[in-house]
């Protein structure tokens, strides 16, 4: 009995942590390259969920055809959402962040600009689409399985497996490709990289594409698992994913995943063992103690300052 509850919670935590991990990726990659906390990222996740909502409704409604099985609709939705949302991410970078970077503004001002971009996305959505919540159409028919008393659905499995696949994919991109090497080079020494003939702006745009499309993926999966959309859905999840990124050691892809899953575990297990109103209190207290003991997060490396 105890083991079943544990396994059930473990599975829930893995799913919950997957969302944090996918969003935290965007924070951590942009931070690794630009040293910028992109606070608009949580809202990019929200944009992803909404874009998916419109594409799915379009494909299932007026233009639905018998040739499109629901699984294919889902696949098209995922890909199209990732493309459109990364467009939004890159647009924000071009319009708001790049001019500030060119002017050599202190990075904290860029952070404030990012906060403002997030507000615009949230409230622009609220103004254009209204405050009513929207129901995400069901594209994948949910099947529930029960193995040894542990319940899970195919959606839950899909979320967890996708996250693991994304982790392997990104680790390969960052470790094995030339662009990935450029990304690591920039985070290692941002002065020397332009001198080596590496096109910094291209690398930055590529980073934003990767980060935003992962947030979009998280948005689609989140909407499939919890099919209610509202304009502020990205705000709280975004802040928590940022916490996950720092917990894992910001700037590290492994860290984003470790931090995301860790935060998921803490939240789910605290809610399982204590009254759920205490969830935030205990989760953040653990975080505070953890960061006081290990200030650079799980995978972060403290750099020595030269005098």
């Amino acid at each position: 009995m105890f083991l079943e509850t544990f396994l059930q919670n473990l599975l829930n935590a893995l799913q919950w942590g997957s969302f944090y991990a996918l969003i935290a990726l965007g924070y951590t990659m942009v931070y690794g390259v630009l040293l910028l906390i992109n606070f608009a990222h949580g809202d990019i996740f929200m944009v992803g969920a909404y874009v998916a909502f419109f594409i799915a409704t379009l494909l299932l409604g007026q233009y639905s055809s018998p040739f499109l099985p629901p699984v294919l609709v889902f696949a098209i939705t995922v890909v199209a959402t990732m493309v459109i949302t990364s467009g939004v991410g890159v647009a924000i970078e071009r319009i708001a962040y790049r001019p500030l970077r060119r002017k050599g503004a202190s990075r904290l001002y860029v952070v404030i600009t990012a906060l403002m971009c997030g507000l615009i996305l949230e409230n622009g959505n609220l103004a254009l689409l209204g405050a009513s919540r929207r129901n995400f159409p069901e594209m994948l028919s949910k099947t529930a399985y029960n193995i040894g008393g542990v319940n899970f659905t195919n959606v839950k499995l899909l979320v967890i497996l996708t996250t693991i696949a994304v982790f392997i994919l990104l680790e390969t991109i960052v470790r094995k490709t030339r662009l990935g090497m450029a990304m690591r080079a920039i985070s290692y020494d941002r002065m020397a990289v332009p001198l080596m003939g590496i096109p910094v702006d291209t690398v930055i745009v590529f980073t934003f594409i990767l980060g935003s499309s992962m947030a979009a993926l998280a948005g689609v999966l989140f909407a499939t698992a919890y099919p209610v959309l509202e304009p502020y859905m990205g705000a709280l999840v975004g802040w928590k994913a940022f916490i996950a990124a720092v917990l894992g050691g910001i700037g590290e892809i492994r860290g984003a995943f470790a931090g995301g899953f860790l935060l998921g575990f803490i939240e789910i297990f605290v809610a399982a063992l204590f009254p759920s109103t205490l969830r935030d209190l205990i989760a953040f207290s653990i975080l505070l103690v953890f960061l006081s003991i290990k200030p650079t997060g799980i995978f972060g490396v403290s750099r020595a300052t030269k005098i």
Partner: peptide, 16 residues
């Protein structure tokens, strides 16, 4: 940025 998270956590802890 790590200190930023700590202040963020303190805000949540107080509210909670």
């Amino acid at each position: 940025d790590y200190l930023a998270i700590i202040t963020l956590a303190v805000n949540y802890i107080v509210k909670s």
